[in-house]
Design a protein around this nucleic acid. Sequence first.
DNA 1: AATTCGGGGCT
DNA 2: AGCCCAGAATT
Length: 339
Amino acid sequence: MTYLSDSIIEWYEKYGRKKLPWKSIEPNPFHIWVSEIMLQQTQVTTVVPYFQKFIARFPNIHTLAIAREDEVMSLWSGLGYYARARNLHKTSKIIEKQFNGFFPTSFHDLISLPGIGRSTAGAIMSLAYNQSYAILDGNVKRVLARFHQVSRPGSETKYESSLWDLANKHLPNKENDKYTQAIMDLGATICKRSKPDCDICPLKTKCQSFHFNTQDAYPMPAKKIRIRKMNKTFIVFRNREKIYLEKRTLNDIWGGLWSFMETEDKKNIQAIIKDFDRNSKIVKKLEPFIHKLSHREIKINTVIVETSKNTDNFFALNEINFGLPKPVAQIIEHLKLER
DNA sequence: AATTCGGGGCT
DNA sequence: AGCCCAGAATT
């Protein structure tokens, strides 16, 4: 099958996005890898400023591999899905040690690395090395689901599998790098989720959804996830200009970032405070606010506690340079303004 | 096979 | 207010 790839590549020559910051005349595998990880479940416009700051600080694998994890997390702060950053760092060390600092060039080696799955490995093989591998991101899924009117059976696995088959079937026999970029660009700029610009789409003469006017029905919607609502109380221990922070464990949200002590049960607040410092007391409560995640909705309460303790985990507001969850960063900004 | 993991853009 | 985004790892 070459109609689809030929048409898309031809379209890309005229209308594709060729100036994204991770693109260069000579492909840079390190840049492509970092961008692919940042772009997982994250839109291009969100990623661009993070990518530029990240590359300015870590221009190559070596600088990343020898960095402190806290600094890596700091540059990821606000981007979300923090396991991506931890895996990125972990993988840079693996490449330094096990691959002698050379970025892997085979699909087998790439997919063995933390944070690199089938689609990301395919993207690197294609975009960095012009090898014939498919990707299956949200853009490609949408284009293929519409082009073929792919239905979503009971089994999600079968649906994914049939899309992968189509993605492989449509691979061109040359210019795979250009094709991969092209089909993503088409999905992002023409074959959009809502109001696709079918009239100027290079695939319209053979697109099933255009023919039957079913663009809104494809891709068929995924199963709805239910959003868990929960409460959290952040306990901000403050000693003059310094506040207490601790590093979060990896098996929860915001893993590896620094945060306040917290509880989900308000009845525990007094006990936690007295356990920390029996002479401390609550001096203030901030206005509660809702922090929304894609799978949770957290009502965040904040209590400020004055303490005279001053351990290693106390930091001046202006010297905090590691990763912070969004709501924690918000609260710290608020505290700075009060000064 | 289903759930978990962020935060933001767009409608 | 709800859905989706250059998905992968874990349960």
